[in-house]
Every structure is written in structure tokens, then in C-alpha cells.
Amino acid sequence: MSEEKKSEPLFSKKNIQLIKNPLNQINPVTIQVLGICSALAVTVQMDNAIVMSIAVMAVLVIGNVLVSLMRNIIPGRIRIIVQLVIVAFLVICVDQILKAYVYDVSKSLSVFVGLIITNCIIMGRLEAFALGNKPWASILDGVGNGFGYGLVLVVVAFFKEVFGSGTLTIPGFEKFEIFGNATDLTGLYAMDYMNNGLMLLPPSSLFIVGIYIWVQKARNPELIGE
């Protein structure tokens, strides 16, 4: 990293781009269509989505750094296996940490923590970026892509939770009841407002992501390719 500092500043324009681009132009979920499985499945509640994003980001950043440090000694022919082992090791650590500190969330994420191993974003970034770049750039790339992934998760979870169950669960805060209490019939519920049950079902996340892509591409016409 010291070598890096000499040649260019820590947050040069190029490095800032590494963080900014994945949020919109090359968003891993909506534009590159990677890592959808978990992005759609863990979004019924906001806290699950946030914890999942943090977990993915942690694995992505640490994995990126490890692969980037080892990029010159990993033999090209077995690099996929090496990457899988590194990621699997990190995911086991994350899984144990989640089980120890946020057991409830870890229970509701169920198999999706394990599926971080096969999350295409992680393998894709390791393969496409970390194998050919220095550790500091890899950290930034990991953070950027982690945020890009998290952004979509949080947006989907927001719509699903607010309209599906009328609440918002943010880790560390009490459950926030936006439209009032459904069982005591307060707030909007007193006026016959009903939660939209469809929002809790799996297909609704597909609709939300579809519309997200629509809005994103409509605002950035240069993204409409093919």
C-alpha cells in the first residue's frame, strides 16, 4: 500500500470512481444482474436486508484484500477453487458471528448466509477485479460494490416492509409502526387501511426490482444497451 501512496493520493479521482460507479452506472444487482438470489429473498424485513448487506460487504472487502494480496502466488489454473475456499472460510466466520450476536436475524436469514459463498457478486469481483489490482483499490472496489448491493436490498426491503406489514425494523431501534398498529386499529388502520399481503410474498420483490431497473434506466438512458 505504501507504494500506492507514492504514486497517487489515497482518494484520487480514479479511486473515488471505484466507490461511486457501482452505486449506479455498474450496479452489481440491477445492471450486471449478479447476486440476485439473496438480494430478493432476504428483503421481507429491513433489518434482515441491512444485516445481509453488511455481511456481504464484509466478505467482499476481506475476500478482495486476501485475493489481491495473493494474486501473484495463486496459480491461474486453480484460482476458482482458491477463491471458493477463501470465500467459504470468510462466510463460516460471518455465520458464526451472526449466530453469536444477532441470533434472531441469523435464524430468519437461514440458508442465505451460506449462499453468500455462491453469490456471483463476490466471485465476480474477486475474478474480475482483485486478481489484477492492488489491495487498496480492491478494498475500495469491495466497499463500492457492497454499497451498490446494499442499496438495492434496502430499497426493496423498504417497500416490502412498509407496504407489506406497515412497519420498519432498523437494527438498534424499536420497531417503527408507520401506519399505526394493525391489531389495535390505531392510525390509518382505524380508517380501514389494510396491509398489502402480496408485498410479503416472494413475487413482489421481483416486481420491485423490475421497476427499480426501469426507473434507473429511464433516468440514465446511456444504460439502455443491447
Binding site: 421497476i211 429511464a218 438512458p221
Partner: peptide, 12 residues
């Protein structure tokens, strides 16, 4: 609609 072509439509 143009922006929905491809992946977006596949999702829906």
C-alpha cells in the same frame, strides 16, 4: 418501453 427491455422485463 425501452428502459424495461431485457432484464427489467424478465424480472416482472
Amino acid at each position: 418501453p425501452g428502459p424495461l427491455k431485457g432484464v427489467g422485463m424478465a424480472f416482472i
